[in-house]
């Protein structure tokens, strides 16, 4: 019998570098160059004929699942989506080739960001072998060419540390805020609307949404509602109104995705019960039941 132990599989990381994170010039540079990596228009209108927004969402969701399952670094997925959007805004593409492109973009982003990148073989398997290895490798070069080999794009994740550092957050909450913000960033990357926003705005909105959602505003006045928005807006030179709008949109996307998840939940629940999971999680489930509101749609975000 073969046994796999994931706990052994540690990635050795560098410590956070204060020279980078505590220097405002880095943040300013990021803000200066971030515009270069944003698609200028909606390519659904002017470039793509075959590809619809819902298809982008489908491929994005698949890419996110692969990245999650493979435990990729947080920035891999948003970066891969950036590649995909930039490619699609220059090359008309058929829908049956979209999954291949998604795989290629993950392949590239993973190689750029990870010490142990995703392998081409794994990506092919995740496409249920509909993609051939040779195709993945050939198209890697095409995508690279269309991106002008310009792979080190600025992603919202690049801003998180810079933003979080400047907020009066309780020490023990920083990691949680960071994690939630990263989650919201990933969620944003699945929605095309956000692809046209500057990464700094998405990052700022995500941190704002995370802090609001975690109820961290009870301790410090400056983390309260408008104060927080003003503070966040100042850090990344974003218009306060834009930022608030962005944060609201993030919360709406969150709501939408959870509603979808909820709709799908019923059949899946049945499914999983059949799979006969080992026990030990009952407590968690019971807790779920008790804390779940009768209907999420009743929650008003406006």
């Amino acid at each position: 019998m073969e046994l796999l132990c994931l706990e052994m599989d540690t990635v050795i990381r560098a410590h956070p570098d204060p020279n980078i994170l505590h220097d405002d010039r880095v943040l300013q540079s990021l803000l200066t160059i971030e515009e270069r990596f944003i698609p200028q228009f909606s390519y659904f209108k002017c470039v793509q004929k075959d590809i619809q927004p819902y298809m982008r969402r489908m491929v994005a969701t698949w890419m996110l699942e692969v990245c999650e399952e493979q435990k990729c670094e947080e920035e891999v997925f948003p970066l891969a989506m950036n590649y995909l959007d930039r490619y699609l805004s220059v090359v008309p593409t058929k829908k049956c080739h979209l999954q291949l492109l998604g795989a290629v973009c993950m392949f590239l982003a993973s190689k750029l960001k990870e010490t142990r990148p995703l392998t081409a073989e794994k990506l092919c398997i995740y496409s249920d072998n509909s993609i051939r290895l040779q195709e993945l490798l050939e198209w890697e070069l095409v995508v690279l060419g269309k991106l002008k080999w310009n792979l080190a794009a600025v992603t919202p994740n690049d801003f998180i540390e810079h933003i979080v550092r400047k907020l009066p957050l309780p020490m023990e909450k920083v990691a949680l805020v960071r994690k939630h913000a990263q989650t919201f960033i990933a969620l944003c990357a699945t929605e095309f609307n956000f692809a046209l926003y500057p990464p700094s705005m998405i990052a700022t909105g995500s941190v704002g949404a995370a802090i609001c959602g975690l109820q961290l505003d009870s301790g410090d006045q400056s983390l309260l509602g408008d104060n927080l928005s003003d503070l966040l807006a100042k850090i990344t030179n974003t218009e306060v109104d834009c930022l608030k709008e962005c944060q609201e949109q993030i919360e709406q996307v969150l709501l939408k995705s959870l509603q979808e998840g909820r709709r799908r939940q019923q059949p899946q629940q049945h499914h999983q019960e059949q799979e006969g999971r080992p026990g030990g999680h009952k407590g968690l489930e019971e807790q779920d039941q008790s804390s779940t509101p009768t209907d999420v749609r009743d929650v008003n975000l406006q």
Partner: peptide, 13 residues
């Protein structure tokens, strides 16, 4: 995870 839709290994289009 709410976005998930079955097996990750799948053909999309």
């Amino acid at each position: 995870a709410a976005l998930r839709s079955g097996s990750t290994r799948r053909i999309l289009f």
